[in-house]
Every structure is written in C-alpha cells, then in structure tokens.
Write a protein that binds this DNA or RNA. Structure first.
Lengths: 215, 215
DNA sequence: CAATTTTTGTACTCTCTCGCATAGAATAGG
DNA sequence: CCTATTCTATGCGAGAGAGTACAAAAATTG
C-alpha cells in the first residue's frame, strides 16, 4: 500500500534502525481527520481510514495506536491547524468590526467546506459524539471551547482598551456571544442550510457585538 | 420479553384480528429515543434498544421497521414531545423578559437531563450525526431548526406589537439570536460544562434581546 | 555480508450486529 | 372448536469491524 498524497518523501531526519516509514504521519493524520470529521467516530471504520490514507491497519496501529487514540490525535491535529489558521485573523491590525466579520466568515467557510458536503465544526461534532464520555476527549473538547471563549475575550478586551468598544462592555460576555455564533454556524452548516440563509447570522453577531454603527 | 415500563396495559382499542401487542409503541419509542439521544445513531445497536425497551428485535422490526426508520420515528417523537412541553411556555401571559428566561432555562434543563449525564439537544445531535446525509433525516432536522426560528420570531413579533420591544426591533434577527443561544447551550451541556458556567449565557441572551433594563 | 531492528502486507480470529426465517403463542371470526 | 391472523421468541446467517500474528521487506550497524 502506498500513501495517497503528493509524492512527498518522508523526512529522512531522525530515522532509527529498522525499515523506514513509507508515509508521513502528519499527512496520514490529516487524511484520517477528514474521514472522522465527515462521519464521526462510530460510523468510521478503520477500513475507511485505511482506504483514505492508503495505509493498512497494522501500519495505523503501529503509528497511532487503536481507533480511539487515532481519533484523539486526529482531533488534536484539527485544533492545531484551526488555531494556526485563525491566529493571523485575530492578530490583524484592522477595525474590530472588520476583524470579527472576517473571523466569522472564515469559520463559516471552514464549516461549509468538505469533500462530501458541509461538515460543521469538529469540536461541536466531537461534543455530540458518544465518545464525549471518554475523559480524554472530554478534556480536549472542554479546552477547545474554553480556548475559543478566551481568545474572543482577549480580542474584545483589547478592543475596549483601544476605544473600539464602550468602557462598559463586558468582554467575557461578548466572547460568549461570539462563541454562540460559532456554534450556531456549525449546527446550521452541518444541517445543510444554504449559505445565503446562514450569512445574515454573521451580520447579526457583528451588529450585536460591535453596535449598529455605520459601515 | 416484557416491556420494561410501568404496568400500563396497551390500549385494547382498535385491535384487529391476531395476537395483540404486548407493548405500547409510544412507550417503546420513548425508550428507544433515550438510547439514540445518548449515544447517537451509529453507536447504538438494536440490541441496546432491545434491552432498553424489553422487546426483541423482530418485535421492533414489526412495529417500526429497520434501524433507520426507528431513528426517524424516535426523533419525530422527540420533536413532538419538546414542542408540546414548550408550547405553554411560549403561550404564557408574562413579560417577555420572564418568558424568554423561562424558555431558555427549560431548554438548559432538558439538555442537562439524562440518565447517564447531559445529552444536549437531539436536533443538534442529529445534525452532527453521519445520518444527516439521509434525505429524510435532513428534512426533519431542517424543519426543526426553521421551526425554532419561526416560533421565536412569532414571540418577538408579538412582543413588539405589544410594546415590549422597540418598534425598530427585527423579530427575525432576534429569533436567530435566541436559536443561537439554544445551540450554544446544547453544545456546552453535552460537553459537560458545569451548569454554573452555562447559566450566564441565558442572562446574556435575555439582556441582548430584551435590553439591559432593570429586573 | 550477517545480524538486528522496524515497517509492511496478508491473513486470521473473535466479536458484534443487522436483518430475517421459522416455530410457537395468543386472539378474533366462523 | 377450528381456522386465519398477528404477535413473540429463539436462533440463524451473512457480513462488518477491531485488533493481532506472522512472514517478508527494507533499512542500519558491525
């Protein structure tokens, strides 16, 4: 079996004694993530992942452990990638109103993306999964939710300090509302609500959080 | 096998020719709903449902059809029951602020309830499920989301007509925000966020929608 | 080149699960 | 009382799925 990705050669660095891996774990994990993200933990078989990655099951076990461990690592990679791709949007030097709109629109783009239709937010899906009763996944998901709240909270706190929000603004409260927007975007995207019906929600959130000013 | 419910005797009305049912379909459906609601479609086996209802699989097939049909009917019953239990809250003659708080609190109560920990909203779970690609379930879930939006929309339109909201209020926009609150409550409840950390979100929503007035 | 180590691929086992076939039980009609 | 009809219960069969054993392959080290 051969990994189904571009002909990237696995980094030869740090190779040990035996036969070298014929695949990049990062790539395989990304491909596994795609399947779990579409179908969820229970409905995804290791054969599905084997097909998606081009690896056979023993290689998957050798590299990642059992199905549960693989899911946790795939979800971990999702969080890492999402954090990396959103960080510049949060750090941008733009008016709050513009920045918030860009962030929410990027989230909607992400949730509507997918090879076989919209997939929503992997964190929301993981919370909905039956595996949420697993303590390790529960920890990851809780952290993800809190992290989103905190990241929005910092954004609004800084905006208030910069005079973009009234002094009376409660940054944690605004952050919870932004997170709520994220969650409703995910639910509606996954439910295949047409994009045109979802986009007004972004307007709602921007107006509610930043005020009904012009522009 | 005997149905595991209180000793309710099945209604003898409308019985046909052959051997009568030894169980009430409504009760069995409610028990099946409980299992699906906790674990989702894929992670629930018919043996799980058989154990929960006390019926054996052929009886389930005879009464409801296959697993997918059973899920659809269980979810249908969920919607029916939820609609029935929330209707009086929407119809109550109370100030909007009080009414909205009662509705959102009842939703949170529902989402935190469950024999084995909080379960969230069945509609959100169904949207997150892999079965959302099934056209029939997709239709039911879309209807449920729209129905919630519309019900809140009517509430706010009437409140505006009664002078409880400013004439400038956009009832559909406010309805989307109330639905977003519902969705974030579900996600956080299912993720086992402690109730005390979720409740402020209800305050946020009431303030955002009804204004920051006293009381 | 031989020995060692690690990965790969095939094939296997064991369990779970869906759906159904079939026989027995309970009821209504004649 | 006998037959037709409908439900219950045991259990089968085919298949999917998770995890692993084992041998072959590919690399490093001496």
């Amino acid at each position: 079996m051969v990994q189904k990705s571009a002909g990237k050669v696995p980094k030869p660095a740090l190779r040990g004694r035996g036969r070298p891996r014929a695949f990049e774990p990062e790539t395989a994990l990304a491909q596994a993530m795609d399947v779990f993200w579409s179908d969820g933990f229970a409905a995804t078989s290791l054969d599905d992942i084997s097909a998606a990655t081009g690896l056979n099951r023993p290689s998957l076990y050798g590299a990642f452990g059992d199905k549960r461990a693989l899911y946790l690592q795939a979800y971990g990679q999702y969080r890492k990638r999402v954090n990396e791709s959103f960080a510049p949007l949060f750090a941008a030097r733009e008016p709050l109103r513009v920045k918030l709109r860009r962030i929410l629109t990027a989230a909607l783009d992400l949730y509507l993306s997918g090879p076989d239709g919209p997939r929503g937010c992997f964190t929301v899906l993981s919370a909905a999964s039956d595996v949420i009763s697993d303590p390790d996944l529960h920890t990851l998901v809780s952290e993800a939710i809190e992290s989103t709240d905190r990241t929005f909270g910092r954004l609004f706190a800084e905006a208030r300090a910069a005079g973009e929000l009234p002094k009376s603004a409660d940054s944690r409260r605004l952050a919870r509302m932004a997170s709520a927007t994220i969650h409703t975007l995910s639910v509606r995207a996954r439910a295949r609500v047409p994009r045109a019906e979802i986009e007004p929600i972004i307007d709602d959130a921007v107006v509610t959080i930043c005020g009904a000013d012009s522009v």
